[in-house]
Design a protein around this nucleic acid. Structure first.
Length: 601
RNA sequence: UGGGGCGUGGCCAAGCGGUAAGGCACGAGACUUUGGCUCUCGCAUACGGAGGUUCGAAUCCUCCCGCCCCAGCCA
C-alpha cells in the first residue's frame, strides 16, 4: 500500500461525483451508498476500467458503503466464462489490500427474488474470496417479470418489424422516427406473443419487445427502444434456459435497482441514455429510493489504444502474445509487466474524475509506478549488455563478498552478499573509449567507483581484429574498499557490475510503447491502426549477466536493477536458474537527456 | 442545420462572484557510493472568443467559435 492510498487529513479526494454522494448522505436521500462495477465479460479489463473500479470502490470505501462486482452478461453471443474469470481476478488484485472489504459478491447461488415490495437481491456485504460476482443474468426472471408488467401497463409492446424496418423507421438525428405498425396492438396480444417468444416459438430476430415512449423524440434512444430480442444461443451462466435476452438499457438500470445500487456511475457516452434509464424505473413505479446514473469522462492514455475491439484484434492477429502481454494496457498485462496495484490506484487518483475529454500522458502513469517501486523494490545489479573488465592487480583466484543494502530507501529491507573477483562484467554504456563531454563513466585513464566495492582506473583496452573492444583493462585501489579514498580524491560516477565467474545468465525483455504516436487513432488516419505499431515495442536480450541471488528471483516480486530500471521476473517464463525479466519501467536517466541534447546540437 | 456533453499552462486538474491549488512534464541549482531518490527555485496578468451585469467575473447573462457522443435486435 502506498502513501497515496491514505489521503492526508483535509486532502481527501474530491470530485463532482463524491460531492453528490456526500450531499445525498447529508440530505438522507440514501442511508448507505452502494455502487457497482459492471463490465461485460467479452474481453479483458484495461487501465480505463481501472479508473472506473477505483472510482466505484473508492467511493464505497470512503463512505462506508459497498461496491458490487457485476457481470453485464446480457449478450451470450459475445461473452465467455474465461473473460468473467479474468475480470474477477483483475478486480481482486486491484482492490486487494485497499477496498476488498467493499467488494460485494452475491450470496452464494442467489438470484433476485420478490421481497414483498418488489424484486431485490438479498443484501450482500463482502462475503470473502471464492464467492461469485453478481450477474445481470442472475436477475433474468425478475427482469422478465418487470417486462410483463410493462406490457400490462401499456408501457411496452411486441413489435414484428424486421431489424431493417426498425432501423429505417427509427429515423435519424434531426429526422423524427415513425411509429411501429404494432405499437397499439392489444395488451393481451403482446402478452401472448411475448410468452411465445420466451417459449422459443420464433426464430432469431422475428420479433422484439419495445418500450412505448415516443417514436418522434429528439433523443433517438427514446424512440421506442428495444427491450428484448430473440437469440437462440446458450448463455454461459443460464445455459439453455432462455432464448430471449434483455438489452443493455433495459437490464442495466433494473439490475441496479434489484441490487440496491444508489449511484450508478458510467462513462459519458451513456449520457443520452439517462432519460431512458429514468423512464424505465418510473414506468415500473418502483418503491423508492431509485438509483441514479452519473457520468464521467473515460480515460485515454497516450501511446496506446483502449477499445476492446482493437485490443482483441492485437491478440487474435498475434501482434502481442496475449491479453496479458506486458505491452498491453490491460490490467493483467500491467500486472505481468510489474506495475503494482497500488501504483495503478495512485494513478487513478492523480488523474482525477471530471467530464472533460482527456488523454493522459503515459509519463504520469510511469511516475506513479516509479514512486511505488522506489520505496519497495529490492536493489540488485544486472548487466544487460556485458563488457568484460579485468582487474590487472587483483589476485587471480581471490573472491571476496560485499554486503550490499537491499534498499537505501528502507534499511529494514536488509542486505545481501555479492561476490567479487578479478573478472567482472560491466554494461556497454558505462565504458567509452572516446568519452563525449560530460561523460563521467569509465574511459581510458579515468577512475570510477564500482558500486559497493572499489575504485577502479581504466588502463587500456583489448581489441579484436575488427577493432572492436573485447576487454577493458583496469586496476583497483584496495584502499577504497566500500569507502572513500583515504587521500580524499573523488570519482564522478559509480557503476554497477557483476562478478564474471559468479554471474547467472538471464533473458531480459525491454518494453517500449505499443505505438510511437501519442494518439494512434488519429495517427492512423483511417488506415488500419496496426500499421503504425511500434516495431521496437519489444527487445529481447539474452546472455545478460545478473548477480547470483537473482537466479532465484520470485516472479511478481519487483526489483530495481541499479541505475537501469525496475524489473520483475516473468510470471510465465522465468525459471529458477534461468530467470527471465520484464522491464517494468526505466529509471529516470539524466545522462540520456544530456546526450540527447548534445546530439541535437 | 435534431438531441446531448465539453472547452483553465505541454498533459491531467482544483476553482462554485473577491482577485488562478496541486500533480506530471519541462528548466536551473543543491545533495548523492544508483547521472536514481530527496530538496530548493522557476514555469497561466490569465481561464475558447466577443459583448454585458457587478465595486469586483474563470465563476452570472447573451451571442459566437471549436471539439466530442448518439441513428446495434452491442455494452
Amino acid at each position: 500500500m502506498s502513501e497515496h492510498d491514505i489521503p492526508a487529513p483535509g486532502t481527501e479526494r474530491e470530485d463532482f461525483i463524491r460531492e453528490i454522494v456526500k450531499a445525498d448522505l447529508a440530505s438522507g436521500a440514501h442511508a448507505k451508498i452502494v455502487t457497482r462495477f459492471p463490465p461485460e465479460p467479452n474481453g479483458y479489463l484495461h487501465v480505463g476500467h481501472a479508473k472506473a473500479i477505483c472510482l466505484n470502490f473508492g467511493i464505497a470505501q470512503q463512505f462506508g458503503g459497498r461496491c458490487n462486482l457485476r457481470m453485464d452478461d446480457t449478450n451470450p453471443a459475445k461473452e465467455d466464462i474465461e473473460y468473467e474469470e479474468s475480470i474477477v481476478a483483475d478486480v481482486k488484485w486491484l482492490v486487494g489490500g485497499w477496498a476488498e472489504h467493499c467488494l460485494a459478491f452475491k450470496p452464494s447461488g442467489s438470484t433476485a427474488t420478490a421481497n414483498g415490495a418488489d424484486f431485490h437481491q438479498a443484501a450482500a456485504e463482502g462475503t470473502g474470496p471464492g464467492t461469485e460476482p453478481f450477474r445481470a443474468s442472475d436477475s433474468f426472471d425478475a427482469l422478465h417479470a418487470f417486462a410483463v408488467r410493462l406490457i400490462e401497463n401499456g408501457k411496452a409492446y411486441v413489435c414484428d418489424h424486421t431489424a431493417e424496418e426498425v432501423d429505417r423507421m427509427r429515423g435519424a438525428p434531426g429526422q423524427p422516427g415513425e411509429p411501429s405498425r404494432y405499437r397499439d396492438r392489444p395488451v393481451a396480444e403482446s402478452l401472448e406473443l411475448f410468452a411465445r417468444m420466451k417459449a422459443g416459438e420464433f426464430p432469431d430476430g422475428a420479433r422484439t419487445l419495445r418500450a412505448r415512449i415516443d417514436p418522434a423524440s429528439p433523443n433517438v434512444w427514446m424512440r421506442d427502444p428495444l427491450l428484448y430480442r430473440i437469440r437462440h444461443v446458450e448463455h454461459h451462466n443460464t445455459g439453455a434456459a432462455w432464448c430471449i435476452y434483455p438489452m443493455y438499457d433495459y437490464a442495466h438500470g433494473l439490475s441496479d435497482y434489484i441490487e440496491g445500487v444508489t449511484h450508478s456511475i458510467c462513462t459519458l457516452e451513456f449520457v443520452p441514455h439517462r432519460p431512458l434509464y429514468d423512464w424505465l424505473l418510473e414506468a415500473l413505479d418502483l418503491p423508492r429510493p431509485l438509483p441514479h446514473q452519473y457520468e464521467f469522462a473515460r480515460l485515454n492514455l497516450t501511446h496506446t489504444v483502449m477499445s476492446k475491439r482493437k485490443l482483441l484484434r492485437l491478440v487474435t492477429d498475434g501482434f502481442v502474445s496475449g491479453w496479458d502481454d506486458p505491452r498491453m494496457p490491460t490490467i493483467s498485462g500491467m500486472r505481468r509487466r510489474g506495475y503494482p496495484a497500488a501504483a495503478l490506484r495512485d494513478f487513478t487518483e492523480r488523474i482525477g474524475v471530471a467530464r472533460r475529454e482527456n488523454r493522459v500522458e503515459l509519463a504520469l502513469l510511469e511516475a506513479c509506478v516509479r514512486d511505488d517501486l522506489n520505496a519497495r523494490a529490492l536493489r540488485r545489479m544486472a548487466v544487460l549488455k556485458p563488457v568484460k573488465v579485468v582487474l590487472e592487480n587483483y589476485p587471480e583466484d581471490q573472491v571476496e563478498h560485499f554486503e550490499l543494502g537491499n534498499n537505501p530507501e528502507d534499511p529494514a529491507a536488509g542486505t545481501r552478499q555479492v561476490p567479487f573477483s578479478r573478472e567482472l562484467w560491466i554494461d556497454e554504456e558505462d565504458f567509452r573509449e572516446v568519452p563525449p563531454p560530460k561523460y563521467f563513466r569509465l574511459s581510458p585513464g579515468t577512475e570510477v567507483r564500482l558500486r559497493g566495492a572499489y575504485f577502479i582506473r581504466c588502463t587500456g583496452v583489448v581489441k579484436n581484429e575488427a577493432g572492436e573492444v573485447t576487454e577493458v583493462r583496469a586496476t583497483y585501489d584496495p584502499e577504497t574498499r566500500s569507502s572513500n579514498a583515504p587521500d580524499g580524491r573523488k570519482v564522478k560516477a559509480t557503476i554497477h557490475w557483476v562478478s564474471a565467474k559468479h554471474a547467472v545468465d538471464a533473458e531480459v525483455r525491454l518494453y517500449e510503447t505499443l505505438f510511437a504516436a501519442e494518439d494512434p487513432e488519429t495517427a492512423a488516419e483511417g488506415a488500419d491502426f496496426t500499421t503504425i505499431l511500434n516495431p521496437a515495442s519489444l527487445t529481447t536480450l539474452t546472455g545478460c549477466k545478473v548477480e547470483p541471488v537473482l537466479g532465484g528471483a520470485t516472479p511478481g516480486a519487483p526489483v530495481q536493477f541499479e541505475r537501469v530500471g525496475y524489473f520483475v521476473a516473468d510470471a510465465r517464463d522465468s525459471k529458477p536458474g534461468a530467470p527471465v525479466f520484464n522491464r517494468t519501467v526505466t529509471l529516470k536517466d539524466a545522462w540520456a537527456r544530456i546526450e540527447k541534447k548534445q546530439g541535437g546540437k
